[in-house]
Computed example of a mutant assay.
Amino acid sequence: MIKILVDNTGYKKFFAQHGFSALIEINNKRILFDAGQNPIVLRENLKLFNENEGFDYVVISHGHYDHTDGLKYIIENDLICGKVIIHKDAFLDKYSGNRYIGIDKEIKDYLLKKADLKIIEKPYKIDKDIIISGYIPREYEYEMEEFHCIKDGKKVKDEINDDMFLIANGVLITGCSHSGIINVVEYGKKLSEIKEVLGGFHLVSVSDEYLNKIVDYFKSQDFWIMPMHCTGFKALTKLSQLNNFIYGHVGKVLKV
Rank of each mutant, 00 (worst) to 15 (best):
K3A: 14
K3P: 10
K3G: 11
I4E: 00
I4N: 07
L5N: 11
L5G: 07
V6T: 00
D7A: 11
D7R: 11
D7H: 03
N8Y: 15
T9V: 12
G10F: 10
G10D: 11
G10K: 12
G10P: 09
G10L: 10
Y11I: 12
Y11C: 07
Y11M: 13
K12P: 10
K13A: 08
K13V: 07
K13H: 09
K13T: 06
K13I: 07
F14M: 10
F14S: 07
F15D: 10
F15G: 04
A16Q: 14
A16I: 01
A16C: 01
A16Y: 09
Q17R: 15
Q17L: 12
H18E: 15
H18I: 15
G19H: 08
F20W: 09
F20Q: 10
F20I: 08
S21G: 07
A22M: 08
L23H: 06
L23Y: 03
L23T: 06
I24H: 11
E25S: 13
E25C: 10
I26D: 02
I26L: 08
I26G: 00
N27W: 01
N27L: 00
N28S: 10
N28I: 00
K29N: 12
K29Y: 11
R30T: 12
R30I: 06
I31K: 10
I31Y: 06
L32M: 07
L32D: 09
L32V: 09
L32T: 04
L32R: 14
L32H: 08
L32P: 11
F33T: 05
F33C: 03
D34Y: 05
D34G: 02
A35K: 03
A35F: 04
A35M: 01
A35P: 05
A35L: 05
G36P: 13
G36H: 13
G36R: 08
Q37Y: 03
Q37R: 13
Q37N: 06
N38G: 04
N38I: 00
N38T: 01
P39D: 03
I40A: 01
I40S: 01
I40D: 05
I40Y: 04
I40W: 05
V41P: 01
V41Q: 04
L42S: 03
L42H: 02
L42I: 01
L42E: 05
L42T: 00
L42A: 01
R43I: 01
R43L: 02
R43Y: 15
N45F: 03
N45K: 02
L46R: 13
L46N: 02
L46V: 15
L48H: 13
L48K: 14
F49D: 08
F49C: 02
N50R: 11
N50D: 08
N50G: 09
E51T: 00
N52I: 15
E53P: 00
E53F: 02
E53T: 03
E53S: 12
G54Y: 02
G54Q: 14
